[in-house]
């Protein structure tokens, strides 16, 4: 069973993504990248990211991830900041540490695409 299903599937992700998006918006290290006029679209992207990270239904190939972050000049600090916000989100949802480690392992696989390495 994926963590996605364990947390309660699609409905639970809707709640989790709100917590996560609030954290990145409040995080001075990365908020500028998330603070757009189209918050709904940005929110949908964060939800897609969380769904992949938690092992929910997705068709993630990395191509879109790479394309979307291409011109943003992101560095490892930005990537780690978002990962920390995700960890804090999962802790708030009382996800056990072992499961959080699993999620972070999945997120780590997206690093090269996000940073266009």
């Amino acid at each position: 069973m994926s963590l996605y299903d364990e947390l309660g599937g699609a409905a639970a992700i809707d709640a989790a993504v709100d917590i996560f998006y609030r954290k990145v918006l409040a995080d001075d290290r990365v908020s500028e990248f998330f603070d757009t006029t189209d918050m709904e679209a940005q929110h949908a992207k964060q939800k897609a990211f969380l769904t992949v990270a938690l092992g929910g239904p997705n068709n993630y190939t990395g191509k879109d991830m790479r394309e979307a972050h291409k011109h943003m000049n992101l560095n490892e600090g930005h990537f780690n900041a978002v990962a920390e916000d995700l960890i804090a989100t999962l802790e708030e949802l009382n996800v056990p540490q072992a499961k959080i480690d699993e999620v972070i392992a999945v997120v780590a696989t997206t690093k090269n695409d996000v940073l266009n390495l």
């Binding site: 949908a44 992207k45 897609a48 769904t51 929910g56 239904p57 068709n59 879109d64």
Partner: peptide, 9 residues
Amino acid sequence: SGCRAGVCQ
């Protein structure tokens, strides 16, 4: 289209 998983809208 995007994720094709009922997420990205």
